[in-house]
C-alpha cells in the first residue's frame, strides 16, 4: 500500500499502520456468500458490532439481529472507494490479529475498544473510529433502527 493510498483512504487509513502490522499482507478473497469481506473479517465485524450494540442495548435493536457482516459487505462493495475499503479491511485484520479479541466477552471487547480510542491515543482512535463509522453507517441505516429511534426523513417519496 502506498503512502497516498493510506492517506486517501481517509479516517480509516490514518491509524491503520498503528494497529495493523500483519494487515500489510495481501488481503484474502471474499468469504462464501460475501462480495468483499473474508470469512475472518466478517467474524470480526460481527464481534465488534455485538460489542457496540449488544442485546438489551438502550436503542432496543441488537446488532446480531441485523446481519451486520452482510451490511458492511454491501457498503464495501457498493459505496466506499477501493482505498477506504482496503484500509478498513487492514484495520479489521489488525483487530482480528489481537490475541483472542473475538473470544472476549462483550464487556471486555468494549473495554479494549475504549483503550484503543482513549483521548490520548490519536492514531489508534482514528483507525478504530473509522471502522466504527462504517459499522455506524450499517447499523443506523437499518430501517428497524431508524424506526426504534423515531427518525424518519419525511420529505422523500411523499
Amino acid at each position: 500500500m502506498t503512502r497516498r493510498a493510506l492517506l486517501a483512504g481517509g479516517a480509516l487509513a490514518a491509524g491503520a499502520g498503528t494497529l495493523v502490522c500483519a494487515g500489510l499482507a495481501p488481503l484474502p478473497d471474499a468469504g462464501s456468500g460475501l462480495r468483499v469481506l473474508s470469512t475472518e473479517e466478517a467474524e470480526i465485524v460481527e464481534a465488534l458490532a455485538d460489542a457496540l450494540w449488544p442485546e438489551g442495548n438502550a436503542i432496543g435493536i441488537a446488532a446480531q439481529d441485523l446481519g451486520m457482516a452482510d451490511r458492511v459487505d454491501q457498503l464495501f462493495a457498493e459505496v466506499m472507494g477501493q482505498q477506504s475499503v482496503t484500509a478498513s479491511r487492514q484495520v479489521l485484520r489488525g483487530l482480528a490479529a489481537w490475541p483472542g479479541f473475538s473470544g472476549l466477552d462483550v464487556a471486555e471487547r468494549l473495554r479494549k475498544l475504549q483503550d484503543w480510542t482513549g483521548p490520548d491515543e490519536l492514531l489508534s482512535r482514528v483507525a478504530v473510529d473509522g471502522v466504527k463509522a462504517v459499522l455506524g453507517l450499517a447499523y443506523f441505516n437499518a430501517p428497524e433502527v431508524l424506526s426504534a429511534l423515531g427518525y424518519r426523513s419525511f420529505c422523500h417519496g411523499e
Binding site: 442495548n57 438502550a58 436503542i59 468494549l110 475504549q114 466504527k132 431508524l146
Partner: peptide
C-alpha cells in the same frame, strides 16, 4: 445530522454510553 453521523460524534465522546444518548434522539 443523520443518525449515523450522530453516532460517530457521540461514540467518540461517550463510548458505550453513546447508545443511551442516541436512544433519546427525538
Amino acid at each position: 445530522v443523520t443518525p449515523d453521523n450522530n453516532f460517530l460524534g457521540l461514540t467518540a465522546q461517550l463510548g458505550p454510553e453513546a447508545n443511551a444518548f442516541m436512544a433519546q434522539l427525538q
